[in-house]
Design a protein around this nucleic acid. Sequence first.
DNA 1: GACGGTATCGGTGATGTCCCCGATCCATCC
DNA 2: GGATGGATCGGGGACATCACCGATACCGTC
Lengths: 211, 211
Amino acid sequence: MTIRVFLVDDHELFLAGVRSELTGAVEVCGTASEVDIAIELIAERTPDVVLIDVHMPNGGGQRVIREVLREQPEVRFLALSVSDAPDDVIAIIRAGARGYVTKTIGSNELLDAIERVHDGDAVFSPRLAGFVLDAFASGPPANLDPELDQLSPREQQVMRFIARGYTYKEVARELVISVKTVESHASSVFRKLQLSNRHELARWATDRRII
Amino acid sequence: MTIRVFLVDDHELFLAGVRSELTGAVEVCGTASEVDIAIELIAERTPDVVLIDVHMPNGGGQRVIREVLREQPEVRFLALSVSDAPDDVIAIIRAGARGYVTKTIGSNELLDAIERVHDGDAVFSPRLAGFVLDAFASGPPANLDPELDQLSPREQQVMRFIARGYTYKEVARELVISVKTVESHASSVFRKLQLSNRHELARWATDRRII
DNA sequence: GACGGTATCGGTGATGTCCCCGATCCATCC
DNA sequence: GGATGGATCGGGGACATCACCGATACCGTC
């Protein structure tokens, strides 16, 4: 099946360019040039991969990533930026992006990067690779945590609420499912992470900057 | 009644000097020249005020303050240091010290500082005062938090355990009291801080770097 | 000596937490 | 096409949490 890709960039010309380059190879299921619209549309279209610009008014790519991952942890983000500044890379990876490439990239390489991110790889432009490894050594970026991958998307979602101190009832209301289902997911989370209660989970999550 | 004072400094000569200067005016109930020994002896002797050096091997004065306050929140700490570096002052105050004076101080002024700390005042060497006020403006040092003073020492003690995720039963075992007493203290804490459950308390405490 | 605050302990009861057990539905994999 | 695992839901039960009662005792202040 073709990969469903969503594009976010505040430069509409660039958006159109990328769209025409990608069409045929992947399914471009939507585009947005504003942060708030992007968050809404991604929730609606449920793409596999989101190509996202870093610098945008009203919160930038980071905000989109955080907002979307809270509700849809299974969406993969690939940052696409003109900048190769370390701070930008760190910020966007910490927000939860799975990769970072500069806009100098060619369409073939971009397609390759999209496929690799879709398969779960972390992708970085060659000249960023060395720097990224350094950053990993000092502080591991949140979402590439192998322990998190043990959890199904739904379990991650429930886990984030529990760690924030929501009661099961509140989580059930948020996700529009039954309390018993929340209990099931919570039990799975505890078992998989080898934690014994929600307090340990809260500490676990804050230590890893997941919440 | 005379104030019971404990001295901690890794320079034994200095320790002896201060001891002889203070004896008569206050009761020196013990001294220590190592961090671990200090923690043990303070727990045993329960002094009113601890005079403590900032720079020491194995954790420094900060570690002593944190460890002791966890179990004995009513003990007052007065830092006594050769340094007047802003970083040192910030660190030790954040750890929970009630005052900071340099070793250039005379015995009369030191006695006065001890009495004022014992009475609950915050004491700083004159040339540090301006700097301290600046620090307050940017980030209020943890333990001079007015909200914390609403809580009795016992309540603070219980609060710290609760905020760390201990169950009431575990707190009861730690403090060797009944579960019902822990519940009473917890209820008082919630009422005084206007919080409704332990999760809010945990967030409240971490926001203020109390735990 | 009365009063207020702290520390201690107990009972009752509603609700929340977490475990055990069960079940159905659906997508993917071999 | 059956096996596997995820997502959904339910019952029952042990225990934890927290509020609202109550009580006694020790302090210090006024």
